[in-house]
Design a binder for these strands. Structure first.
Length: 174
DNA sequence: GGTAAGATCAGC
DNA sequence: CTGATCTTACCT
């Protein structure tokens, strides 16, 4: 169950201008999925090491996505631990976007798949859980104060907030 | 064609 | 605080 997400917009001329988004500078090499139809998985490699996953959200032709930042593993704890390390405590298995992909076995090969197709190796099902809290996004140096991170309050699986050291002082970022 | 920064994480 | 080390953007 996803317990923490972050919203990312698109270019200046779109509905959600967002300098922190991969799609801010327009359609390109890695971000093409973000411009496609909603419900697809957009994966990217972070710092050369980790894979992070987004759910594409806007209509076809408009860039917008939600980064999956943390989840609670409700089934297959043993499988997730085999991927992350057997001594990893369950709440930490999918805490953080890189760890979440590791625990779920999401790789760059999954980029662009349809999350609502029963045939897909990764799928998403809506839940009744409501958003509990919001705040600024983790690690972004642009638009660092924009409260576009959402999580379920009180859940142990939610990652810790870290402001980017490269972000301007509080209040000086758009 | 070079270089630096980045939607990260684990280990000192 | 640092290193790991891929991808792109933004220079020259």
């Amino acid at each position: 169950m996803i317990v923490e997400v972050e919203a990312y917009g698109g270019p200046l001329d779109g509905p959600w201008p967002d300098a922190a988004s991969h799609s801010f500078r327009g359609f390109g090499g890695r971000n093409w999925v973000m411009f496609g139809p909603a419900g697809r998985l957009y994966t990217y490699r972070s710092h050369g090491i980790h894979v992070c996953a987004n759910v594409v959200c806007a209509t076809d032709g408009v860039a917008g996505a939600v980064l999956l930042r943390a989840g609670a593993v409700e089934a297959g704890i043993d499988v997730a631990q085999a991927r992350r390390g057997d001594s990893t405590p369950p709440p930490a298995l999918a805490r953080g976007p890189g760890n979440l992909c590791s625990a779920l076995g999401i790789t760059m090969d999954d980029n662009g798949i349809d999350l609502f197709d029963a045939e897909s190796p990764v799928r998403l099902t809506p839940s009744e859980e409501h958003v509990g809290a919001d705040g600024p996004r983790v690690g972004v140096s642009k638009a660092a104060d924009r409260p576009w991170r959402f999580w379920l309050a009180g859940r142990q699986e939610v990652s810790l907030y870290r402001r980017s050291p490269r972000a301007p002082a509080l209040g000086e970022s758009d």
